[in-house]
Design a protein around this nucleic acid. Structure first.
Lengths: 225, 225
DNA sequence: ACCTGAACACCGTTCAAGT
DNA sequence: ACCTGAACACCGTTCAAGT
C-alpha cells in the first residue's frame, strides 16, 4: 500500500502496544516484527517513529515512571520528609510491581526520560527543602532507588523452588521450610519491603537528628562507624 | 570430525568462556553460536552439556554467588548479627559490582543454584541463631537482597546523562548539577550504599532491641507505624 | 512523510548422521 | 557419548521503491 493518507502508526500507539506485550509476555516477547504484526503493519514501519527498539522500550519505561505519585512532595509540610518519603516509596513500588517486566529497563536510570527525571527532581528537591545537605539528598534518592527497584526486580520468595526435595538438609541445614516460600510470595515480599522501608527511614531519621544537633552546637558531625 | 576420543568441551570450560563473555560484552553478547565459536566448536555442541542457554547463564550466575564471603556467619559471636550482616553486605555487593552484567540473572533468585542456596541458608541460619524470629529472619534475607541487588543492578549516578542541556531548569528545577553525577559515579554510588546500609542496620537494631524488650517483659510487640 | 518487501547478518534449538 | 552440518522458525536494522 505504501504511504496511506492518514498515518497508520503513532508513537503513542506503538508504546501502548509494546507496553501491553511487555506486561503480558515479558521483555523477550517484544520483537519489532511481533510488535508490528500486533499493530497491523510490517516490521520496518516502526523505524519511522523510533530510532530503534531500545527507544521504544525506553518510552514504555517512562510511562511506568509517570505513574509514580509525587504529590506528597509539594503538598505536605516540607520538614516531614519521612512521611513523604514513605508514601512515595509505596507508590513507587506499586508502579513497578504492576509492571515487573520493565524494571530492568528502569534500572538503567532516567537517562533522558522525562518522567524518570521528574521523579529524581521531586525527591531531590524535597530532601533539600527538608534540610538535608545536597550530597545526602542525592544519596537518599540513590538508596531509595536501590531498595525499591531491588524489591520489584524479582520476588524473593518466588525465587525459591516449590519442591521440598531441592533443599537437602545436609547442604542447607536452615532451609527446611524454604519450599513453602513460593506459596506466600506476596505476603513475604511485602512484609520484607515494609520492614526494610521502616528500618531505612528509622535509620535516616536518626542521622537527620544527629545532623540537626551538630548544626545547633556547631560540633563536627559524629561519624560513628 | 564427529566425536573426538577426548571431549572438547566440559561444563567448566563453557561456563568460564560464558563468564568472560558476559563480563566483557554483556548478557546480550552471549549467543550459543558466538560462545561455541569462542570455544572452537559448533553451536549445537553446547547442548550436549547444558539443556539450554538459560542453564548456562544460571551456572555463570552461580559462580558469582560462590564468591560471596559467608565466613562472618560462623566465625563471629552469634549475637553480633549486625556486624556479620554488615560485612556480608559489603562482600555481597563487591561480588556483584565485579560482575554487574550477571545481576539480572541473579535477581531471578537462587532457584536450584547451589551457591545461591548456600548464601540464603547462611544468612537465615545466622539471623535465627542471633535470636530473630524465623519470619523476621526471612524478611532480613529478602530486604538485604533487595538493597544489594538494587545497588548493583545499575549505577544511580551513571543513570544520568553527562550533558547539562538535558536538564532544563523549567522542567527540572533541582537537577542543575545532575550532569556532574556521571563524573563521580563510583563515589556517589558507594556513598549511597554505605549510607543506606548503615540506616538499614540502625533501623533493624532498634527493632531487635524492641523485640528483646517485649520478650523480657512479656508485653505485646509494639508496632508503631 | 510513511509505508512496503527484499535483503543482510544474525539468533536458539532440533535432529539425523557420523565416530 | 559427543561432535557435526543442515534445517526451522525466528531476530534487528537498512534500504530502495512506492505514493
Amino acid at each position: 500500500m505504501a504511504r496511506p493518507r492518514k498515518p497508520l502508526l503513532s508513537r503513542e500507539r506503538i508504546v501502548a502496544a509494546a507496553s501491553a506485550l511487555v506486561d503480558a509476555e515479558g521483555l523477550d516477547a517484544v520483537s519489532t516484527r511481533r510488535l508490528a504484526a500486533e499493530l497491523g503493519v510490517s516490521g520496518p514501519s516502526l523505524y519511522n517513529h523510533f530510532r530503534n527498539k531500545d527507544e521504544i522500550l525506553d518510552a514504555v519505561a517512562d510511562t511506568v515512571s509517570a505513574k509514580v505519585d509525587l504529590s506528597m512532595f509539594d503538598e505536605s509540610d516540607p520538614r516531614d520528609w519521612r512521611t513523604a518519603l514513605h508514601d512515595w516509596a509505596l507508590s513507587y513500588r506499586a508502579a513497578l510491581t504492576e509492571h515487573p517486566n520493565v524494571v530492568p529497563v528502569l534500572a538503567r536510570g532516567p537517562g533522558r526520560r522525562p518522567a524518570g527525571l521528574k521523579v529524581a527532581d521531586a525527591v531531590f528537591g524535597a530532601m533539600v527543602r527538608a534540610g538535608w545537605p545536597a550530597a545526602q539528598a542525592t544519596q537518599i534518592g540513590a538508596l531509595m532507588r536501590y531498595f525499591v527497584t531491588g524489591s520489584a526486580l524479582g520476588s524473593f520468595a518466588g525465587g525459591f523452588v516449590d519442591d521440598a526435595t531441592a533443599y537437602d538438609p545436609s547442604d542447607y541445614p536452615h532451609l527446611g521450610q524454604a519450599h513453602l516460600l513460593a506459596e506466600h510470595q506476596e505476603k513475604v515480599d511485602e512484609g520484607a519491603f515494609e520492614t526494610g522501608l521502616r528500618a531505612l527511614l528509622d535509620g535516616l531519621a536518626a542521622r537527620y537528628e544527629a545532623g540537626a544537633r551538630t548544626k545547633r552546637t556547631g560540633a563536627a558531625p559524629s561519624d560513628r562507624a
